[in-house]
Design a protein around this nucleic acid. Structure first.
Length: 527
DNA sequence: AAGCGAAGGACCC
DNA sequence: TGCCAGGGTCCTTCGTGC
């Protein structure tokens, strides 16, 4: 019916509804021990408490020399950070959890697995990146950088021109959406730890997609493998996913959004941005009053609660949603002073787009909160790429996009599947055929074809490889997908895989091409 | 010199 | 027993070829 329906196909494929917070602070944050402890073997950490305590005492005593070895300091820092996370992790929604025990269990269960080893490898790579940055930093840290300060300050002036304080943007996020929908149908689930699952690719109960608040008390979260969740909470009630129900609930929620902003932008089944500037002109209500009204309507329609953030742009609105979650909202006035006051104390991790890795990198450069960006701006300008630096600067200034619209242009389409480890040629090609078939079906339903074909494989070791080939013309048929993907796979053999995927990009509508797969170009576009 | 394709990652939901 | 998804976007780096 309305333009939003077209998005449903891609949005409904979204499985995980929440951020994967737990594992961020788990064993993937592998420490690299400093020279005194020899190597980076995490297994020794629990076994060497006395050594660790010694190191910890040294660290807590502060730097005793004026000459700082940043290389060693970084390793030490990572290590201490790991220790703190390991024993006292800060995790949202886990106030009543025995955090140490949770991480202990996760660590014990994951230890030694291929996944774990791969995470360790990735983490070491990040540490290498950080060390490279730090040695660059070492070279410039005593420079005055007056030129850079001037450049950056000019940049800030330019960015200020982008600032638009005249829009009222709302970010709305449903609370524990899938779990809450399940609780509507089965009220007894409200009082017990419960999760929904999907992906039984490799047997067992697969990956969790949502958890209710009871389950979170045990440290159980979405995007956690089921067997770990059961270790954390043996009485965990597991229910199957029921997408049609979530879509139904989502449609009701969206009908409310529609009333306040016909161009609202859905980000997933349970999340959307609205621009209520126009709506505000039709009422005497203040922005927060309007949002209360929206959330009330959502509740009346669905019996589900939502949280919201109200601010001058999308970035700020999203950050505001976090403040009073669940079932709450936060209004950030569109005044420069209020925005600065709000942004400054926040951890850089709260910036949408700053994840686990970027946080580590920035922390290593002494940037922990958004406030820290400003005094370090000249150094950051020298160390980071132009794009990354401007991204950070915008975040610090609280400048973000105010464009809310539901237009969505797909750039790529793909299908990937995980399975039990496979290595025989026959098995591999059989899987490839299956995946090509699924992709061909999706292409059919969306009337798309594309020119660049990509193969993705994940080895049994969890190493991921992607191979791509841009073809002379557009393809969409299963046989073609299979043919070109096979050529790419052939070069990788022999391998033992746990995942295969095919992606098609450089897309265009099938209506726009002739029989040879060549895109038709309108004559008038040439002249 | 600019542009593009390919490969690898970070991040988001 | 057995051991961590899938669908996207965007950025960075590198290499080749006009």
């Amino acid at each position: 019916m309305d333009h939003h329906d077209e998005d449903d196909a891609h949005l409904s494929s979204q499985i995980v509804e929440e951020e994967d917070l737990l594992f961020d602070d788990g064993p993937s944050e592998q420490p690299s021990l400093d020279e005194t402890t020899g190597n980076a073997d995490i297994d020794k950490i629990t076994a060497q408490h006395s050594d660790i305590d010694e190191t910890l005492r040294v660290r807590l005593a502060g730097p005793s020399t004026s000459k700082v070895n940043y290389h060693a300091l970084q390793r030490l820092f990572t290590f201490i950070e790991f220790l703190i996370n390991y024993y006292f992790p800060i995790q949202a929604g886990m106030d009543s959890v025995d955090k140490a025990k949770v991480n202990e269990i996760i660590y014990e269960v994951s230890k030694g697995s291929s996944f774990f080893e791969n995470e360790r490898k990735k983490d070491n790579a990040v540490t290498g990146r950080i060390n490279a940055l730090l040695s660059k930093y070492e070279r410039i840290k005593n420079d005055v950088l007056s030129e850079e300060f001037i450049i950056v300050d000019n940049m800030i002036e330019e960015l200020e021109d982008e600032r638009d304080l005249n829009q009222c943007i709302v970010h709305i996020d449903m609370d524990a959406f899938y779990a809450s929908v399940e609780e509507l149908d089965q009220p007894h689930l409200k009082t017990v730890p419960m999760v929904s699952f999907a992906f039984q690719a490799v047997g067992g109960i697969g990956m969790l997609c949502t958890s209710n608040y009871e389950a979170r008390k045990f440290g159980v979260r979405s995007a956690m493998p089921g067997y770990i969740a059961l270790k954390l909470c043996p009485q965990l009630k597991i229910v199957p996913l029921n997408f049609s129900k979530y879509r139904e609930a989502s449609a009701k929620v969206r009908s409310v959004f529609e009333q306040y902003d016909p161009h609202y932008c859905p980000m997933s089944l349970d999340e959307a941005y609205l621009n209520i500037t126009e709506h505000l002109k039709t009422t005497n209500k203040s922005p927060p009053e309007v949002v209360v009204e929206i959330r009330d309507k959502i509740f009346k329609e669905t019996l589900l609660t939502a949280s919201a953030g109200i601010a001058a742009n999308k970035m700020l609105a999203k950050m505001c949603t976090d403040v009073n979650k669940p079932n709450g909202q936060f209004y950030l006035k569109s005044e420069l002073a209020d925005i600065q006051e709000f942004i400054n104390p926040l951890s850089i991790r709260k910036i949408p787009g700053v994840g686990r890795v970027t946080e580590r990198v920035l922390n290593a450069l002494n940037v922990n909160t958004c406030k820290d960006i400003y005094p370090q701006r000249a150094m950051l300008y020298k160390l980071l790429s132009d794009i990354s630096f401007k991204f950070l600067l915008r975040a610090h200034l609280g400048i973000g996009s105010t464009s809310v619209d539901s237009e969505y242009v797909r750039k790529s389409i793909s299908v990937e599947r995980t399975f039990r480890s496979l290595s025989s040629r026959t098995d591999l090609y059989f899987k490839l055929k299956d995946i090509a078939q699924k992709l061909a079906k999706d292409l059919e339903s969306k009337n798309l074809c594309g020119k660049t074909l990509g193969l993705k494989i994940k080895l049994t070791s969890f190493e991921v490889r992607t191979r791509a080939k841009t073809l002379p013309g557009n393809i969409y048929k299963q046989e073609d997908l299979e043919k070109y993907a096979s050529q790419l796979l052939e070069k990788e053999l022999p391998v033992s895989l746990r995942l295969m995927g095919i992606r098609l990009s450089s897309l265009c509508s099938r209506d726009e091409i002739d029989q040879k797969g060549v895109k038709r170009v309108g004559i008038c576009t040439i002249f």
